[in-house]
Structure formats: C-alpha cells, structure tokens
Design a protein around this nucleic acid. Structure first.
Lengths: 185, 185
DNA sequence: ACAACATTTTGATTTAGGTCAAAATTTAAA
DNA sequence: TTTAAATTTTGACCTAAATCAAAATGTTGT
C-alpha cells in the first residue's frame, strides 16, 4: 500500500484527503504464481500496481502462448487497449511469481479524476512514461538480429531477462525458444 | 487552426480564456513535401497537429532509412521519447506530402497545464488513445507473416497504405521493399 | 528422496523472406 | 515534350532463424 502511495508521490503531491480516499479505495491482493488476472474476452476493469513479484501479459496465436510483455515490481500495468477503450481484451494477464498487487478499478479512477483533478496529471505522467519507454524500445526493432534483440532487452530491462523464463522471453522478443537458448550459450 | 481546436474539443470542453490563449500561442506552418522538422540528436520541442498532409518519423540503421510510423491528417505527433524525457531524439521527422502543421512547444504546454488544469485531461486522453492503438497493433505482431503484417496495416490504417510509398511502408512493417512489392502483386 | 512435470539445450532439416542486381514503370522538373 | 530522377517490379540466389524431434537438465510436490 505504502509503495503505491510512494509511487504516486513521485509524480504529484497528494492532499491529505486524496491520500486518505486512495487508501480507502485501493484493493490489495496477495496472489500465488500463475494466477490469471484477466482472460481473453473479458474487459479489463483495473489498473494494477505491482508491489511484489512479476506479471506477464500474453495471448494465444495459432495455439501458441505468446508473451506480450513482462512487468517487474514497482510498475503499473493493465491491458491498455481494453482498459482505455472499455472493450474485451485479446490478452491474458497472469502472475509469473508470487505477487502482491494493488489496484483501483476504471470507475474508481474516473471518480478520483473528477474529485481530485490533480490526479489527471498523474494519469498523464504515467502514460507519458510508458509511451517514452515503448517508443524508444521498438524503434527499428524489427531490423535487429535475434541476438541484438536479446541484447537490447538485457540492456533496457535487465530485470526481465534475469527473472523471466526462456520461453516467455523468447516469444516476447519474437524469436523461437531454441534460437534464444543458442544465443545465450 | 480551427481544426486543432475542434480536435481538442473532442476530448474536453474549453473555456473562452483557454481557447483564446491557445489560439494566440499556436504556431501554424505550411510546409512543402520533404521538409525535415526534427533531426537525430536534437531534442524535440514541439507537439504537432497535422491539419493537412502526412508526416513520417524515421531513423537510419546501418545506413538504411527505416520508417518508424506514418501519420495522416487530424492526428498529433511528436518524438515521444525525446519530447517527454527532454532528450536528444534518435529519429527524424519529415513531411511526406505538402502539409500544414499546428504546434505548441513543450514549455507552452507545461504553462498551459498549470494555468488550465483541465488541459491535463486532454494530455492524458490523447496519450491513452495513442497507447490503445499501439498496444493493439503490436500485439503478436512479430509472429505474423509478411503478408499478414501488410493486411493488418491495411485494415487498421488504410490511409497509410493508400498514401505512403512502398519503401516507407515496407520498412515501417519491418519487411523488405521487394517482399512488399510481391505481396501487393 | 523420488516421481512427475516443466524448462532448457542440442542436433538435423527446412523455409520465408532477405540481398543483390537490373529492368520497367512512374513522377517531376527543365 | 524530353530528360532526369525516383519508385516499383522482377529474377536468381542465399542466409538467419524457424521447425521438428529428442535428450538433458531443473523444479515441485509428496
């Protein structure tokens, strides 16, 4: 809980009332590894903050499990497309380690935005951060060799390559598990 | 000009004063095809709205010109990484048709955000929209065949495949121009 | 400590799409 | 218009990485 407030305060200052209301609204859950938070076809109702553990988003393509991204501690995650546009998700979200997640629902955020307009700024800033990361990471990504892709991930997000398993990392990078294993040798 | 105000009003309502200030601050430029708006190494100072024409972001990789994205009319664009983090860009931005661009600087936006906090909401919403688009488009993208990639782009962004040239589209999709030409046959 | 399962590695083979080169077409400019 | 420049197409060849298959590790629960 305190982690999440600290996280928010990195971006904006919080009034006493706002802080109290967030504390009251927040949902904290302790989950075992492998717990599925969102399934394909369901609309993602929550914006999660990872206080502990790692979480993965993935989907099935031709029967194969394809990782979309792996999120470490102290980051926020949701199925952006589904959460923002209020549409059924095409992806799954699951914990990849025992985890503690702190979350608020979409509706709670809308209410908070109206009640404490300062929070709009927080909303904007975390999106800016995500966008800056994505934007940078994927620039020219396809024209890298499998090895360069792996090296880029290791440089930009070392936590991921350290903690996630080979198959997950490989599909996230868009390469086969066998190739990644050979690269790592 | 009016296009841009209309665009903003799709997301939030504007007070008289705010509207007047935006009108006063805005920079409108009419540019010929091929005009370079941002170069690698320079920090991107502006958030652009495309009132007319198309604009392309690209960078050089092993001496080759790689398109990152192509933006049509009535969209906003900037080098997100550079603009947000205030760091030198790794990319170029250029007009790919004769264009009319409406823009405000980073600093002007910061001032506007402070003066008219309602605009924070606009900032958040356009980022949400961008994020939802990106998020959806790139999901499982690497595991598509060259043909499927092209079809996805055609479905999601028909304007791009209609108006941009082959080489630009190919590098944007991460495939060679020759392959794209064969796909299109 | 063992069984059952999940993950990673290694080897052999195949293939989609890249590269190189040159011709054909389209567009622009003088 | 005619020429020059840019863009797209076509052809022949090649390579990085996918696929298939099986062995070798590692991890988990009982």
């Amino acid at each position: 809980m305190y982690d999440f407030l600290t996280y928010i305060k990195q971006y904006i200052s919080l009034s006493e009332v706002a802080e109290r209301e967030i504390k009251k609204s927040v949902f904290i859950e302790e989950l075992p590894k492998g717990h599925v938070l969102l399934r394909e076809g369901k609309t993602c109702e929550r914006l999660y903050f990872i206080a502990k553990g790692t979480v993965r988003t993935y989907h099935y393509q031709d029967g194969k499990d394809i990782t979309y991204w792996i999120y470490p501690e102290n980051t926020v995650l949701t199925s952006w497309h589904s959460y923002i546009l209020r549409k059924p998700a095409s992806e799954y979200i699951e914990t990849t380690e025992d985890a503690v997640l702190i979350s608020l629902s979409y509706n709670q955020w809308q209410e908070l935005y109206l009640k404490y307009p300062k929070l709009e700024r927080f909303g904007r800033l975390i999106l800016e951060e995500q966008m800056a990361l994505l934007d940078d990471f994927f620039k020219g990504y396809y024209f890298l060799s499998a090895k360069e892709k792996y090296e880029l991930l290791t440089t930009a997000f070392p936590t991921i390559t350290q903690r996630a398993n080979l198959g997950h990392i490989a599909s996230m990078l868009g390469i086969s598990q066998e190739t990644l294993s050979r690269i790592r040798k």
